[in-house]
Write a protein that binds this DNA or RNA. Structure first.
Lengths: 201, 201, 201, 201
DNA sequence: CAGTAATCGAGACGGTACGTCCCGTCTTTAT
DNA sequence: ATAAAGACGGGACGTACCGTCTCGATTACTG
């Protein structure tokens, strides 16, 4: 019953799911505190109350452990309100929520800082980033279909324009990301891509 | 006479400028190769052909060494062509040159990745970033004075919009930064801030 | 059952006896080559094919390591032939053997040279020396009981007289200790303590 | 005027005798405190208020410096009372005085401990020791001439017997050397060499 | 329900870099 | 030329983790 796809049950004591979770939890905690480079497997083991070998039995190195831990961070839901301004506002607001409620704001710069030295990490990050860009791109495409943006708008650049101010603040100014930024960014991006900004209030 | 402001010369053998340079050179080289966290003082010493003590005599830790090394990266000259479009094009082009000809593109993400764990580094980076934002801001202010941008434009956001796409590509896409990006960005930023983009060619 | 006095077994991998031995062997070898002050823990680690931490896990510093290494040098067996002359001859001959077959002749002066700066070493040496003096003293006591030496003989001085020429040669003349010295010393010591020396051959 | 044997005056500033003395004084002090191996030229320089180069300009290494410093320790005067017992008593008493009033008791074991690793030091010590043995040997020869000792007495062994108990105490027991030891040693040595000990008191 | 075998916590293992200290040499200005 | 001061390249110090290994104990399924 517990065996997945018609496979045989392995002999011996099965790996504990509770331990798996405990390790991933400890990893996220310590990633936030010490960053990727400062993350010591030894500390993860201690924090999780686990032997080092138990970690190395499941993950070959620090990187896949961190990647699996990061996958526990929720994706941002893609809204579809029928208005590009509202869609953007909504998606940026929930992004800010995620940045505030998860270690992402601390973990991401740390991983980015190591990417040049680790092709595997680089690839993993590419995937992570691509997955978060895709919904934004689709959102802009729908805006073009609705006629809110001109058909020749450079949508990849649009995604860059949306993310840019956040990334700049996240990476360069380090301060907390402010929800007040959302409205001005939304308007600037839409205008920048050739769309019209309706007057609100 | 040789002492500047009424100071006396220190007794003993003076510290060698050539060694100082050699250490900073080795630091930049190794920063590019191994990043901030992977940078070993021991390797810097070996690469520079210097004893470890010689390094610790000048810098208390890895961080101030790296900060001083980074200050050798040239600042971007601020153009003043009379047109915001030309100014921006010029300044972005020379930024790309700097990113290509110095280890900055490798060093910066690495430092940013550590900033959350090191207030001193954070402060140093703030200074570094502020100094590169200032000329861009002044450029936008001149555009407002000339009437190229509306007087109520959010210029800080403007700087974010300019830097954003570069930073996104530098940190998230890791690939080389392409000069072809300049023109679209310039136009989107000007439009985004409420300015008019003249038709070229 | 294997635990002696009701003790429990320690968790974790037990320390290896083979490694313990290898470290002590390397220590004795290097003590002979470089002396106490020239003995580098780093060299012991290299010679024993062991990490430095493995040494520091067992011994807090160079000194206790050296002391334990020295305890591997065999004690001299105490003969009991019924004749003080024969006893002395025998014990001095085996002492010479030990001096020749172990690093003792090199290690001892080196340790003695450091004793004034290290109370712990001083104590350890006192123990070492006392243990080697005791059998000699008992030998002399038996000679008094048998009437070979006068009852008021100063036996502690006797031990000094026996050891003296060896020590003088070992420490001051540095050359190898000659077994030909034994006979004259034995006769001089017995006469010096007031005993009679029978004519041999 | 200051130039010695018809030589020309050296150009430049002459070496200061006061500095020379200060260095040797500091050397003896520190030898006593730290032993030969623990003696740091750096400390000698600091203690003497002198630059390190000033020391290296006069002595090629630690050893010749120590040797010259040791030569400031006075030799023991050789008595000639006409009685071997009195001669020995006298010479041992003044030896004890020297051991008490100079750093010799601390310096000697330290040097002896290094001799196996330094042929030059070994040679220097041989000379030092030979010079102190010679008067004792001559003293014993006069005793043979006077008939106090048998003509076939092994006088080198005699010297060993005299020095032995002192050396044993100095090197092995570390305690202060007691003048009360003198009388018993003298009697044992004379008897040991085949001489007669007259009853005193 | 004993036997089998992989997992578990613990921690020893060989190794590498840390930041400090002192070595013996070199380089500066002042005497 | 010698002096004090102290920078220099080098090497060992004792510490902290790395990733691997070896222990006894635990845990599930098998026969």
């Amino acid at each position: 019953m517990s065996a997945g796809s018609g496979g045989f049950r392995q002999p011996g004591r099965p790996r504990s799911d509770r331990i798996h979770e405990a390790i991933l939890d400890a990893t996220l905690e310590l990633l936030r505190e010490a960053g990727f480079s400062g993350l010591a497997i030894e500390s993860v083991a201690t924090r999780a109350g686990v032997g080092k070998a138990t970690i190395y039995r499941r993950w070959t190195s620090k990187l896949p452990l961190v990647i699996e831990a990061m996958q526990r961070i929720p994706e941002i839901p893609t809204p579809d309100t029928g208005s590009i301004a509202d869609d953007l506002t909504e998606v940026l607001r929930s992004s800010i929520d995620v940045l505030r409620s998860t270690p992402l704001a601390h973990v991401l710069p740390s991983l980015v800082g190591e990417r040049n030295r680790d092709p595997e990490l680089s690839e993993a990050l590419d995937g992570f980033v691509a997955e978060r860009r895709k919904p934004l791109l689709r959102m802009l495409e729908r805006a073009v279909e609705r006629g809110e943006l001109p058909p020749d708008a450079d949508l990849e650049l649009g995604v860059d324009l949306i993310l840019g101010p956040f990334v700049v603040r996240l990476f360069f100014t380090a301060g907390p990301v402010d929800p007040d930024l959302v409205q001005p960014i939304v308007e600037a991006v839409i205008r920048g891509l050739g769309g019209a900004v309706e007057q609100r209030r």
